[in-house]
Design a binder for these strands. Structure first.
Lengths: 110, 110
DNA sequence: ATCCTTTACCAAGACTGTCTAGGCATCCAA
DNA sequence: TTGGATGCCTAGACAGTCTTGGTAAAGGAT
């Protein structure tokens, strides 16, 4: 059997996470759930991709973490966007639009 | 300085190459040129990405290679789509549309 | 009380695809 | 005869995702 393509487009997870945090802070699994739900179940975020991405983003200063308690009364690490994160999000959206436009032009057949 | 994003969306090169070969056989550099041109200079394909991709595609049986002579009278390896390659192209386009729709839904803000 | 399931976080290593940075051969013009 | 342009090619670094494993705590069921 052929190997399946990943559930994500490589390199877009950071943008998706920032977007999921745009309006409210959330904890890790809630971010993954939110992305899946916002995408109408098209996208699926594996935990093994999620947590490394969260560290990346935090290390870049785009999100900030804080321990809290989830709706289910469990210890959870809440992330929220920083000002730099908002800037980054808008830069990534712009980049995404630009590149996908390029790809769409190619697919449209020149 | 921040690191620049790549000129391509990781994982889309195979699709772009297949698309560039959809109507005519071409040699390697001409494929890269064609993608760049079709995308209005938005996308740029490095040789170090191009050739490995061509081997991949040939190994999968999606393209077939043959030595020839370029317009500039140079030895060049011409690639053309196979029947399986056409199928693959359409599968990849479908997958691309699906995933980008998911991403666009997320970006639209849920 | 004890177990089981669910929630939540985390890590190690494999894998894949792109990029950087080289190199070789040939053609043609200066 | 030298140098630029064309065309193919490779090795190794690198980044991001996936697979697979784990821990801990809450809450319900037995």
């Amino acid at each position: 059997m052929a190997k399946e393509k990943p559930d994500l487009v490589y390199g877009t997870l950071d943008m998706l996470i920032l977007k999921a945090l745009q309006y409210d802070p959330r904890h890790g699994l809630a971010i993954a759930d939110r992305i899946q739900q916002m995408s109408n179940d098209i996208l699926h975020v594996e935990q093994g991709s999620l947590y490394p991405a969260l560290y990346r983003l935090e290390a870049q200063g785009w999100i900030k973490a804080e321990w809290g308690v989830s709706d289910n009364n469990r210890k959870a690490r809440y992330y929220k966007l920083t000002a730099a994160g908002r800037k980054q999000l808008s830069a990534e959206e712009e980049h995404w639009l630009r590149i996908t436009k390029g790809i769409d032009l190619v697919l449209a057949g020149g």
